[in-house]
Amino acid sequence: MIENINSFIFQLLNYPYLQNALFAAVLVGIICGVIGCFIILRGMALMGDAISHAVLPGVVIAYMLGASFFVGAVITGVLTALAIGFISQNSRIKEDSAIGIMFTAMFAAGVVLITALQGTSVDLWHILFGNVLAVSRTDLYFTLGIGIFVLGTIVIFYRPLLLSTFDETMAKATGLPVKWIHYMLMLLLSFVTVASLQTVGIILVVAMLITPGATAYLLTERFSVMLFLSAFFGVVSAVTGLFFSVIYDVSSGASIVLVASVLFAIAFFFAPKQGLVFKMLKKPKNETVAP
């Protein structure tokens, strides 16, 4: 193991592409972790999945037009969020069904477009599952830009975001534009998805959004602490996952997600207050108290 770590560090020091990969993965770990906390507490995990998949046709169309894939992705991401809201508000279809309909439709459109473009250099596999080792300097700066924007927005709107997440009616009563806050979050979510494309890919982004946040949720009772813990677990998953990916030559995105899942499993069983093991240990005590 120590040999492997040494080898990883050696490679890291000598290969700039690996440095880029590491920085990109760390950044994605942080921003996904932070945005993920809001997604979890608003009960929008499925929405996160939807937006990340819906980005695909935007990326492909942007490629066809020679435009920035960032713009394309954000447009289709936000359009999908709007369409989901529109369907659930204007018919008897419930929101989860509307999400299911819209994101599969968008994803399918993306796949059709890619297969129609066969022979070009759009690599479906890389968009779906990411390839962090192919991150260039430019990509890295781009991810950094998105990261600063997303974190900055959250710092500025921290109180409105917290209040509207915790108590929507009070937020509305005191005059917060709750609907706009929702769409702002959807916009940030599309940004984050695009930033994560190369690191973990479309399909596994949702894991980076949900899993570190859920792990943090089991460990703390304060929202601000949850945000930091979640970002921390995102970073740990990113670095450890990249390590395994380099040493054993396996998919980077998938190994990052697996590390995040293992961290969650540990918290699920061993968290001091919420962990299953300690809850079970506490039970007999309660039974003796009860008559």
């Binding site: 507490l41 917290l162 209040l163 915790f166 108590d167 009616t169 009070m170 009563a173 005191t174 949720y217 703390t220 009772e221 304060r222 929202f223 602490v225 949850m226």
Partner: peptide, 22 residues
């Protein structure tokens, strides 16, 4: 505004002082 008790997620990671500060 004081909401109906069942409209609040009581598992939300906030402490008593955080709620009052809102």
């Amino acid at each position: 505004y004081v909401p109906q008790r069942n409209s609040i997620d009581w598992d939300f990671p906030v402490r008593v002082e955080d709620v009052v500060l809102m």
